[in-house]
């Protein structure tokens, strides 16, 4: 298979499935981004952090997918367990993130740095980075499609390259989120964003636990 053709395929796949990626990550990205400080620069830093670790997640998954070949289409029970586990982790991190924002920002978050989860200050981990990694390894439909294709490739380098190009194309759809930097931050906006994060977290926790327990999400 020709290299340029393969890269083109990865790029087009990423571009076509970008809206689905944005929709899938939206409940995580939008409230957490709104809960951070205002301004283009800080929002760009958030997105770089989020997308950077998402890229790491992609590559990690690509390596494993190629190594195991069949991981991307495991038996439904195993897939549900992976999906459920990631949902639970996302829920926990979002709750922690919302809690951390409450600790850091008493009124408006006018600070210049990103909100850390865990310890406040330099020792904490950026919430955006953790969320990026978790969304990077979650089995959303476009990701599974790319994984299936990557698993068919002849060597691991090609699989990684395929995922890298796929990632770049999907990332283009995330660029408009920088515009959220224009939204003025005050106590009300931070409160709304934090509460939305908690609601999304509760949904992920409930759905995750249901999946881990082997139940259908809908009764």
């Amino acid at each position: 298979m020709g290299g340029p053709f393969l890269l083109g395929e990865a790029f087009l796949l990423g571009l076509a499935s970008g809206p689905a990626c944005v929709a899938s990550c939206g409940p995580v990205v939008v409230p957490s981004l709104l809960a951070e400080g205002a301004g283009w620069r800080l929002n760009a830093r958030y997105l770089s952090s989020f997308l950077g670790t998402r890229f790491v997640g992609y590559l990690l998954f690509a390596a494993v997918a190629w190594e195991l070949g069949a991981l991307v289409s495991p038996p439904p029970a195993v897939r549900t367990l992976i999906y459920g586990g990631i949902h639970v982790l996302l829920g926990v991190v979002l709750l922690w993130y919302a809690h951390s924002i409450g600790r850091v920002c008493t009124h408006a978050c006018a600070g210049s740095g990103l909100v850390s989860i865990g310890r406040v200050g330099k020792r904490g981990v950026s919430g955006a980075a953790v969320l990026g990694l978790l969304t990077g390894v979650s089995l959303c439909p476009p990701f599974v499609a790319a994984g299936l294709r990557a698993a068919q490739l002849s060597n691991i380098a090609a699989a990684l390259l395929f995922f890298a190009v796929f990632f770049v194309a999907t990332t283009l759809w995330f660029v408009p989120f920088v515009g959220l930097g224009c939204v003025r931050r005050n106590a009300s906006v931070i409160f709304v964003a934090r509460t939305a994060m908690i609601l999304v977290a509760l949904y992920y926790l409930l759905a995750g636990v249901a999946m881990l327990a082997g139940r259908r999400i809908y009764g």
């Binding site: 939206g26 964003a193 934090r194 509460t195 939305a196 999304v200």
Partner: peptide
């Protein structure tokens, strides 16, 4: 009073996802 806005934001995003 702001909670409905949070519910709106969360539900719009979850509905899309």
């Amino acid at each position: 009073r702001l909670v409905p806005w949070a519910v709106l934001l969360a539900m719009v995003l979850l509905s899309l996802a």
